[in-house]
Design a protein around this nucleic acid. Sequence first.
DNA 1: TTGTAAGCGTTATCAC
DNA 2: GTGATAACGCTTACAA
Lengths: 335, 335
Amino acid sequence: MPTLKDVARLADVSTATVSHVLNGKKKVSPEVAERVLRAVSETGYRLNTAARSLRTGRTGILGLIVPDITNPFFPQLAQAVEARAKTAGYATVLLESGYQVDTEAQGLDFLARHRVDGLIWVMSGGPPRHAQPDFPTVVVDYAPPSWNAVHADDYGGGRLQARFAVEAGHRRVALLWGPLTVTSIQERRRGFLEEAGPHLEIVHECSAPFGLTLPRTTERELLRAQGDYSLIVCGNDMLAVAALRALKRAGLDVPGQVSVIGFDDTSLAQIVEPPLTTIAQPVRRLGNLAVEQLLELISGAQQAPRQQVVPVTLKERGSTRRLTLRAAPTAAEVA
Amino acid sequence: MPTLKDVARLADVSTATVSHVLNGKKKVSPEVAERVLRAVSETGYRLNTAARSLRTGRTGILGLIVPDITNPFFPQLAQAVEARAKTAGYATVLLESGYQVDTEAQGLDFLARHRVDGLIWVMSGGPPRHAQPDFPTVVVDYAPPSWNAVHADDYGGGRLQARFAVEAGHRRVALLWGPLTVTSIQERRRGFLEEAGPHLEIVHECSAPFGLTLPRTTERELLRAQGDYSLIVCGNDMLAVAALRALKRAGLDVPGQVSVIGFDDTSLAQIVEPPLTTIAQPVRRLGNLAVEQLLELISGAQQAPRQQVVPVTLKERGSTRRLTLRAAPTAAEVA
DNA sequence: TTGTAAGCGTTATCAC
DNA sequence: GTGATAACGCTTACAA
């Protein structure tokens, strides 16, 4: 594979000149530039980024760690991050942690060894066991104290779920969370319980790994309690879909006999039948903000850790029934 | 950030020795090794992969280019590839082309500049405009002549769709493909048409970009032809879901009034209502084979280009109605 | 405007 | 078994 030296030789200039032409940092006579560019294409020269970053100490790469790429929320987040990063000249490298802390640690190591310029990290559980990475890092979906973070208002979203339940006339509910080690789930739960207060009676509560199918026992217990609740509140859309499938398999009508509410407003919400009532996270916005904050961190423009929270909204669709005639609550009312 | 030199100084050995300890390539006295390891953890040393690969010419990285990470098929493929690559000590870098040739070209450039050791490439359209990359490459989902490739039997899958349609008693069908620039779609179509022969009458045929919602005009035309066909054959599951939604919105019963058949057997197939009859691709198998072939290519064990085709199977679910009493066809029958 | 040369952090060759 | 040292391909003072 040809190197700068090969190009330089062919163009009859020094390697420095070739570098100048290619990086446009210094003035070069058009004539020489022309010669260099021809030599570049004749040799099929390609920059060796290893050599460059060894020299410059920068890579032009941002890492992105997400827990699960089969949850449609994360591909969407990844697309937003990637697009925004690209406009700033950064490439993005996507890693999946599988909600496993050791995989996550391996990923961090990988990124550190490769000297990425920054990291956007959707933690799979918190608080972090690791010290802060030694490169600029923005945590998404959770705000560990003294870390830079961008996340949706999970707490507020949980409250929205509860508020909706109350307003729609539900009294007895079942809760189906994801793993409680996941901080956003904790927050959603906390918000829900706080807003629910005495207005809602929790007749069943359980956690399940994120997935489109419930574990056997979770399903069994959820269905056994059926009849006792009129609504299942779910930790995210995947679990809401899983609940929907379980109910359907048991021959129950949604929302006729049981209502279901999710969280995230992923593409799943609109393709299941009935479409999911859910809490919408502004994914694109989260991705953009995360990248922008990371860029500031990288440029050194930002000093103290900053935590940004973006609001969520309720999307009422067909998976929930209103048992009363009251109007739907708005985000503003709950906030 | 500490370097080998820092570690060497602290352990009072040479950098060569530190390298030997860390890479375990040469014998080192346990005593010295111990000292080195302590120094490593005291300094918080982390390998600089740029320096290593500058020296060794290898990166330990495989590139994976997929067209669209919001199509659940590709996250699954990515997981399979990543898992298999990891067992061989390779990390995987995932890139998305968005079905755009220029984005794809940028991705190839990126991977070339980073000197990845190999590439698994799900082409977004074919035949390739580019010459073969100058690193080992396995194409997935399509087999350009003289390239290494692994793909599902799209042609056979198309035939399976047609055979099923015939056996189930459908006579008049509508076809909804993805972009015909996508080679796997071409193959599915070719297989379908060939097997359909005179047995099926195609009353409507259209293409749409992959997505969970049909473009307005596509939807309108598809619905206008409704009544004229009893089955919509789709290029993949996403489009089948889009068709399902369009039919539902028009108040039509699936499969009562119209049947729908997809392709891929992604997670989508099992969560929509009714669940999709579809052609299952063995994703995991594709991923494994692709990595294994790539590894052989990298090790130089493989000579002539090899193209592997893996069989697909029909999954009959609720989205299709049988208008006759004949038995379902099996893969074997069609093959 | 162009060239020279040092140096980034490793690994590998070759002495010792 | 351990240590000097050159070299990988690039960028960047600095010199010309």
